[in-house]
Nucleic acid binder design. Structure first.
Lengths: 133, 133
DNA sequence: CGTTGACTTAAAGTTTAGTTCAAGGTTTAT
DNA sequence: ATAAACCTTGAACTAAACTTTAAGTCAACG
């Protein structure tokens, strides 16, 4: 069992963010000790990890909440949960594409800078401000 | 030459966002017609595309502004610009990793749902709420 | 015994990146 | 000629996701 501080350190996630998620209903069934302090077990940490993983890839708190609510209703809602996850997976794919394109764009810019610093002025046309300042 | 509406359509980016970027200093040297309306040429569109590409991958307006300001100062600042782009490229790589991990996590969850719906209850232990509701 | 530090809450504040609004100018169509 | 369809500005507004603050409880240390 872990305190919120330990959980925070293990998850690399601020304690008040964990409290915030709890308040938002993203972490059901978090137990308390005699003083009313939250206590987390390994399973709680796994769940929080899942939540932060989804958050980090752009799923909104509202959608996370929806998943939690469906999960609490039991297996009858698995179809709906699956639909949400499949949509999110598509969203992840889209983001991956955007990142790949951006990586290419940055690489090209860096290549142009390299050429300029090597003294290949004929390659400057690829830059914007060096072309029409 | 294009009006802001045409630029907006070509870039798939709201006109007021383009104005906002202009106001923030992200689009230097945008010319105006006799009525004071902005007019964009192909090169302007390319530059805006670059800005939105960087934005879409998490670069802040403040950092974009920095790049623009450095670019306006000429080639002496290429080293600094390169440093910013290299840092951003690392950031992109980090984001790609996060997405890959999330994709895996979602795939696993979906696989668990599949098993449950196929009626393999022994696989339910992989889910959270079905285990400790 | 007092103070240090971790925990609690609710509520207010912050940040970022737009978006919308209000008020107005110009050109084109009917 | 008058309305529709553009464009302009600055300022106010919004939304999401925290983050900070304020006020308080509790246990341990010296």
């Amino acid at each position: 069992m872990f305190t919120i501080k330990e959980a925070s350190e293990k998850l690399n996630c601020p304690a008040h963010t964990i409290r915030f998620y709890d308040k938002e209903g993203l972490l059901p069934n978090i137990r308390r000790d005699d003083n009313g302090n939250r206590i987390f077990d390994k399973k709680d940490l796994d769940w929080i990890r899942l939540m932060t993983c989804f958050r980090a890839t752009g799923m909104s708190i509202a959608d996370l909440k929806k998943i939690v609510e469906l999960a609490l209703q039991g297996e009858a809602t698995i179809g709906q949960r699956r639909a949400i996850l499949e949509a999110h997976q598509e969203e992840i794919k889209r983001k991956q594409q955007v990142l790949n394109e951006a990586f290419e764009a940055v690489s090209q810019k860096l290549e142009v800078y390299n050429q300029i610093q090597k003294g290949n002025p004929e390659d400057r046309f690829l830059t914007y401000f060096d072309e029409r300042p």
